[in-house]
Nucleic acid binder design. Structure first.
Lengths: 198, 198
DNA sequence: AGCACATACCGAGGAACCCTCAGGTTAGAG
DNA sequence: CTCTAACCTGAGGGTTCCTCGGTATGTGCT
């Protein structure tokens, strides 16, 4: 199912092109936030004051629009992981990063599904970013394991499965009743090696 | 968002009605399995050898078709919980039931999302079954907690959040690489009170 | 300034799917 | 056999997807 080259939307050359590209992206962010990743592309185009063909010119697939709309946030997440990599408390670093990741994964409904897809399917617009994130998270995990703070048999893939599962729970939950922080904490306590109490 | 009476599809009175109802249900099961809960209703009708209007007569909403298609499996799950309720090993009972629940929740793509919705939204076809399941699971949890085998501060709602999160992970995973059993086990180990080793 | 053309825009239109409803058909009770 | 409630049909209006041929325009070059 690897479809040729993944289209990573890039800023167009001409001034009017850039204007429209930005307008579409802004409209898309708003629409995704409101209606989830399945928001109508035609109404996004309308909202941006652009014909539908123009939207497709810049973003040939829905996934490439989602990718462009979430690229920055994902990049921040990767940067944050790098910053935390040398933390003196690797367990705190890991848990803090995971919280942040869960929050980003559930920016809007449907995102976490797209990211989970992209994680292992090259030929997907978001694959590059997901891969970078995978590395960042894996480093934090390894550090915590090296310090003997997290059970050694937990793999990065498992970490990401949990991460996206928790994000999905958060995405589903009603605004008031978000149980995901508790779930994540339960999991973290579960994987922590505790040889402190006698 | 509670929409009047949830339509629980019931077997029609006339013989031709029952025939078509069953044919539609069979076609729907196949289609959901293949294409997920968003499978085309028109092609389900066609597959069943029935006009689209007939499908809508029996199942006014997609959710009621999904409900009918999964009712038996869910009922089995509830019955299984009742059977396990008096198990001599409540922790084993709980973990066995959870495995089974995860497996059923991910019968086809999209199901777990519908069930998660139905869990707390009365006015949804599947709500009754979900509610029954909630009780069954809660009983198993309480039993394990009463025996001091599972941390006491875990609530049934949290249990179900985890359950559906894990099911979602399973639903996403490629056929070969299903990490959900491991995730579930990790969680179970995490919530188990261990005061056995010195 | 004027030209040329790559770049960008437009929106009609075919296809898929949703769901409704007015009118025709039929099973089955009496 | 009659009658009617139950059932079936499929055309059709609405939405969204995505493509593509035609048209417009920004921009570099002279």
């Amino acid at each position: 199912m690897t479809t040729g080259t993944p289209h990573i939307a890039q800023r167009p050359r001409r001034a009017d092109g850039r204007r429209n590209y930005d307008a579409i992206l802004a409209a898309a962010r708003k629409a995704f936030e409101a209606d989830g990743s399945e928001a109508s592309l035609e109404s996004i185009a309308a909202q941006a004051g652009v014909a539908i063909g123009t939207l497709y010119r810049h973003f040939p697939a829905r996934a490439s629009l989602v990718e462009a709309a979430t690229r920055d946030g994902l990049a921040d997440l990767v940067a944050h992981a790098e910053r935390l990599a040398s933390s003196p408390d690797p367990l705190l670093a890991l848990s803090e990063w995971m919280e942040r990741a869960v929050r980003h994964f559930s920016t809007f409904r449907g995102l976490v599904g797209i990211l989970a897809q992209s994680m292992y399917d090259e030929g997907t617009p978001s694959h590059a970013m997901c891969s970078a994130m995978h590395h960042g998270g894996a480093d934090l995990l390894r550090a915590a394991q090296a310090a003997g703070l997290v059970r050694a048999d937990l793999t990065p893939d498992e970490l990401f499965a949990v991460l996206s599962g928790v994000a999905w729970v958060r995405e589903q939950s009603l605004p008031g009743r978000d149980g995901s922080p508790r779930i994540l904490r339960l999991f973290l306590e579960g994987i922590t090696t505790r040889d402190r109490e006698p």
